[in-house]
């Protein structure tokens, strides 16, 4: 019989559980989120937790399952916010997956495909948050999880320029921004905005106290808007800075900014089209940052124009590209 949980869209890995020890290629199991450990017969089961958010009731149930199947009674919080159940015997895969399915918990994946998105808290409860990062991560996970690509494809969402989700180090990252506008009649010249601005983009006029704004220094964090007592600073528009080609690992690469103020409703299009371009241009085993280096950023931007035109362009000629 076949177990669907270690089957993915590219390489169908059919495993007969009765004889799993002889027939299964343990490397293929990684595509289903089962990672071989040093210890004989034992695997790490990586769960699918987009944005690292989980309902408490589910967490309680998962902890019961983890307690039952982990031979050592331990879990690990992965670097990409997913919970991993350690020391699981491969002979119990079917049981643990069916128990997880009953509580609506899916298993993650590894290998050359779109990975589970990571995200910070976002605008729902974080005072700095400008975008609904959690909602975005959930949406991307639903739409794109497991889509095959030439190499791994990591996405993340940060809600503000502090960039806790490290969008600069992702294959494709989205960081929330807000464009401030100032209305003179509402301003009392209190100078709080120039104090609140950490980028020196706002200085106060020595006579009137009113702001002198330098948009070139602004990183669109919205501190001026939040600090202004009279709503003289307002949000003109929200969106995402889009970054591509970042990675960490043995040879880290910094991403390139390819679009600013991309609206929420174009994020899915941006991912879909970027994955399409990556699959058409990337070599097997090549991260998208290296594909862009080899093929040229302009080719990518030309391809993405129908999507990125909904945002604003950036000076994408970053150092080293």
């Amino acid at each position: 019989m076949t177990d669907h949980f270690i089957e993915d869209k590219t390489t169908k890995v059919n495993v007969n559980l009765e004889t799993i020890g002889e027939r299964v290629d343990f490397n293929d199991l990684k595509s289903g989120g089962f990672i071989k450990q040093r210890q004989k017969d034992l695997f790490t089961v990586r769960l699918r937790c987009p944005g690292g958010r989980m309902e408490t009731k589910k967490l309680v149930e998962i902890s019961k399952i983890a307690d039952k199947y982990s031979k050592k009674g331990v879990v690990h919080f992965s670097f990409r916010q997913s919970l991993e159940i350690l020391y699981v015997d491969y002979k119990e895969f079917r049981n643990i997956v069916s128990e997880l399915e009953k509580i609506g918990q899916k298993v993650a994946s590894c290998g050359p495909r779109v990975r589970v998105p990571t995200a910070c808290g976002g605008c729902e409860y974080n005072p700095n948050g400008l975008t609904d990062t959690q909602g975005m991560a959930e949406m991307v996970d639903q739409k794109f999880f497991g889509t095959p690509t030439p190499h791994k494809f990591k996405t993340s969402f940060s809600g503000c320029p502090i960039d806790c989700s490290r969008t600069k180090e992702m294959d494709f990252g989205f960081q929330g921004i807000v464009e401030p506008v100032w209305e003179d009649p509402l301003c009392t010249g209190c100078t709080i905005c120039s104090e609140a601005c950490k980028e020196d983009a706002i200085v106060s006029d020595p006579d009137t106290g009113k702001p002198i704004f330098d948009p070139k220094k602004c990183i669109f964090c919205g501190d001026c808007i939040r600090a202004c007592p009279t709503e003289a600073w307002k949000a003109k528009r929200y969106g995402h800075i889009v970054r591509i080609g970042g990675k960490h690992g043995r040879h880290p690469m910094e991403s390139i900014e390819v679009c600013t103020f991309l609206p929420d409703d174009k994020v899915a299009d941006a991912i879909q089209k970027t994955v399409e371009w990556y699959n058409a241009n990337g070599k097997r085993g090549e991260r998208i940052g290296n594909t862009i280096k080899r093929v040229g950023i302009q080719k990518y931007l030309d391809f993405m124009e129908p999507v990125f035109k909904h945002g604003s362009p950036v000076n994408y000629l970053a150092p080293g590209v």
Partner: peptide, 21 residues
């Protein structure tokens, strides 16, 4: 303090009437 406290006060629903440096 001036970077953070007024923001938080606004978020709690209070109104800043006057600011003098």
């Amino acid at each position: 303090p001036i970077q953070n406290v007024p923001k938080s006060i606004k978020e709690e629903g209070h109104k800043i009437l006057e600011v003098k440096k």
